[in-house]
Design a protein around this nucleic acid. Sequence first.
DNA 1: ATAATTGCAAACACTTTGCATTTAT
DNA 2: ATAAATGCAAAGTGTTTGCAATTAT
Lengths: 139, 139
Amino acid sequence: MENLLKKASLKNTKQRSYILSVIMTSEGPIAAEEIYKSLLNENKKINLSTVYRTINVLSEKGVLLKTIREDGTASYQLNDLSHNHYLTCCVCHSSVLMDDCPIVELSERISKETGYKVTGHSLQLIGVCPNCLKNNYKK
Amino acid sequence: MENLLKKASLKNTKQRSYILSVIMTSEGPIAAEEIYKSLLNENKKINLSTVYRTINVLSEKGVLLKTIREDGTASYQLNDLSHNHYLTCCVCHSSVLMDDCPIVELSERISKETGYKVTGHSLQLIGVCPNCLKNNYKK
DNA sequence: ATAATTGCAAACACTTTGCATTTAT
DNA sequence: ATAAATGCAAAGTGTTTGCAATTAT
């Protein structure tokens, strides 16, 4: 964890390690407010701005992968090979996590085509869940 | 265009057709505010709320594909086979359009696995553009 | 020592909502 | 006729920012 911070050339503060540990133990991509509340629950005092600033810098540095949910809130997870994406129902807004990511190969191809160094991505599938299908798209 | 509205069982109002025509002639995914300004430029009077309400309902009905940009603003395009995705630089926030979409096949597989009817997706690659690479990630 | 980070409060930007009026079916 | 859509203004929500105080190197 200190490694991650060093790699990003960021100072190792207790707030940052709190934030990282929440992200690392989270089931899926997690939003700023959720990180914040999770820390308050553990009696780790922190300011919400600090959470925002930290996840921003970490995702700019490529440590975190930023995914924006259908409602526009940003969520974050470690930028490793085993990260997840959501499939979200556009009727009832429920989500399921998909268990793999199809973008890895694509990234390399696009890198060559554009000259960009591709460091991450945001992917989310939208659909209608079985339940809403059954109820004819009624909420 | 009236077809699209009928398919979504929505009334055919002039505001809606204005909005659709802007989206159809746009280069890539376009945001609410941009649609709004584009219409004002053409002296088509419309309210920003109407734009928001229209694109929301159209994307819920699967007519539009909603993509959320790295800054959290939602952008919209027709949900057809030839839609585009962005590759955005996380340092200077410049974007390029990628010229195809790798998600079509994935969608079918996920449909079978989850029971969801997959109606769309949001994909965006994040990276560092050639220029920012050259400047060592400095803005 | 000093440059980076944090907390706080205030500002911001995008988006949504309630309600009265207008419009398409 | 009536249910849906629009305009307006006001509120909401997630996020960012300026600045003084604190902290890691």
